[in-house]
Simulated scan of single mutants.
Amino acid sequence: MNAHEIDYRIIGNELQYVEIELDPGESAVAEAGAFMMMDQGIGMETIFGDGSAASQGFMGKLLGAGRRLLTGESLFMTVFTNRGHGKQSVSFAAPYPGKILPMDLSQLGGKLVCQKDSFLCAAKGVSIGIEFQRKLGVGFFGGEGFIMEKIEGDGLAFVHAGGAIAERTLRPGEVLRVDTGCLVAMTREIEYDIEFVKGVKTALFGGEGLFFATLRGPGTVWVQSLPFSRLADRVLSASRMGGRREEGSVLGGLGNLLDGD
């Protein structure tokens, strides 16, 4: 294997973190801000890119890191290496409520395409890059723009998604339609396109947006029940309403009125 062979365990239910156990000399890479805690024998170093191509020169590493800027990620990543004599652990926390998904790339065809901001950490040797969407419809209306994250290699990678997670394995030709924001990740064989919601009333007044993401098998897809953008919109909407109580109750609304809300 090109990637380091790491052990892990995922701790927690809705607010999870992943604890990675490293043998001496093994390393893990993580996005800036994902670090939670580490044992005394773990050393950390900030690098350009993901450290998957150590033999590249400075310009190669700089260009590889620069491509990550197109997905809105940092130019730098952090490598955590076990510099001690026994097993050592380092932990990375999820940024919001949801689930951490372990992805064994050696069993997923060596490549996973996922939404921006979903990557959390991985074994050193895994490559984190960008995946351009070649179809204009997907680029303009797919919810993730022309660019998604691409994770390649033969090691373990961890992605995070909001709410509950549905994993669906599609047969050849089988189609799954999902909300564009609910798509978390898909294997390399999946055909990804955008479909307009049929019917003027449904499109304009259905409250579900104008487009579906259509995923055609064969392959595996992961779908989240609560995209962070949807959660943020609800929080922002509630804050603008002044924290009204008992939204579904007439008496609750009357109480808010009497309280001056």
Score class of each variant (00 low, 15 high):
residue 18 V to F: 08
residue 235 V to I: 15
residue 43 G to I: 10
residue 19 E to V: 11
residue 113 V to E: 09
residue 14 E to C: 08
residue 97 P to L: 07
residue 76 F to W: 12
residue 240 R to F: 13
residue 52 S to D: 12
residue 93 A to N: 07
residue 111 K to C: 10
residue 8 Y to G: 03
residue 155 G to Y: 03
residue 51 G to C: 05
residue 209 G to M: 00
residue 67 R to A: 15
residue 80 F to D: 01
residue 79 V to K: 13
residue 33 G to T: 01
residue 17 Y to Q: 09
residue 202 T to N: 09
residue 228 F to A: 10
residue 233 D to C: 07
residue 149 E to I: 12
residue 79 V to I: 13
residue 142 G to V: 05
residue 109 G to Q: 00
residue 213 A to H: 00
residue 183 L to I: 12
residue 7 D to V: 08
residue 61 K to L: 10
residue 96 Y to C: 00
residue 173 G to Q: 06
residue 188 R to L: 03
residue 13 N to A: 13
residue 73 E to R: 13
residue 237 S to C: 09
residue 208 E to Y: 07
residue 247 E to K: 12
residue 28 A to Y: 02
residue 145 G to C: 06
residue 163 G to N: 00
residue 206 G to M: 05
residue 148 M to V: 01
residue 36 M to A: 14
residue 189 E to P: 00
residue 140 F to K: 04
residue 156 L to S: 02
residue 151 I to S: 01
residue 92 F to T: 00
residue 203 A to K: 15
residue 214 T to Q: 13
residue 118 S to M: 07
residue 192 Y to R: 10
residue 58 F to H: 13
residue 31 E to F: 05
residue 227 P to G: 06
residue 201 K to A: 14
residue 198 K to T: 06
residue 81 T to P: 01
residue 44 M to S: 13
residue 236 L to V: 09
residue 23 D to F: 14
residue 151 I to F: 03
residue 218 P to T: 12
residue 185 A to W: 02
residue 76 F to G: 01
residue 91 S to E: 04
residue 221 V to S: 05
residue 26 E to I: 08
residue 188 R to E: 10
residue 59 M to R: 10
residue 21 E to A: 15
residue 165 I to N: 01
residue 108 L to E: 11
residue 221 V to R: 04
residue 142 G to E: 03
residue 68 R to V: 11
residue 15 L to E: 10
residue 177 R to Y: 14
residue 226 L to S: 05
residue 34 A to I: 00
residue 114 C to N: 04
residue 87 K to R: 14
residue 3 A to R: 06
residue 10 I to A: 07
residue 88 Q to M: 11
residue 179 D to V: 02
residue 97 P to N: 05
residue 169 T to R: 09
residue 198 K to Y: 04
residue 176 L to R: 12
residue 143 G to W: 04
residue 62 L to H: 07
residue 88 Q to E: 15
residue 156 L to M: 15
residue 137 G to W: 02
residue 123 A to G: 13
residue 15 L to H: 08
residue 130 I to Q: 02
residue 55 S to C: 05
residue 230 R to D: 05
residue 3 A to S: 14
residue 226 L to E: 01
residue 29 V to A: 10
residue 217 G to N: 07
residue 53 A to T: 15
residue 187 T to K: 01
residue 29 V to R: 02
residue 89 S to Q: 07
residue 117 D to E: 13
residue 177 R to A: 08
residue 28 A to D: 00
residue 249 S to R: 03
residue 40 Q to P: 03
residue 21 E to F: 15
residue 257 L to N: 03
residue 227 P to D: 05
residue 1 M to E: 14
residue 156 L to A: 04
residue 147 I to Y: 06
residue 192 Y to S: 03
residue 4 H to L: 04
residue 112 L to S: 02
residue 70 L to T: 09
residue 205 F to L: 08
residue 215 L to M: 02
residue 164 A to K: 11
residue 176 L to A: 14
residue 191 E to V: 08
residue 144 E to K: 09
residue 81 T to C: 03
residue 105 L to A: 08
residue 226 L to M: 08
residue 229 S to F: 04
residue 83 R to L: 14
residue 161 A to S: 10
residue 194 I to T: 04
residue 58 F to T: 11
residue 78 T to C: 05
residue 106 S to M: 10
residue 204 L to M: 13
residue 28 A to S: 12
residue 57 G to F: 09
residue 7 D to N: 14
residue 40 Q to I: 11
residue 10 I to R: 07
residue 226 L to H: 08
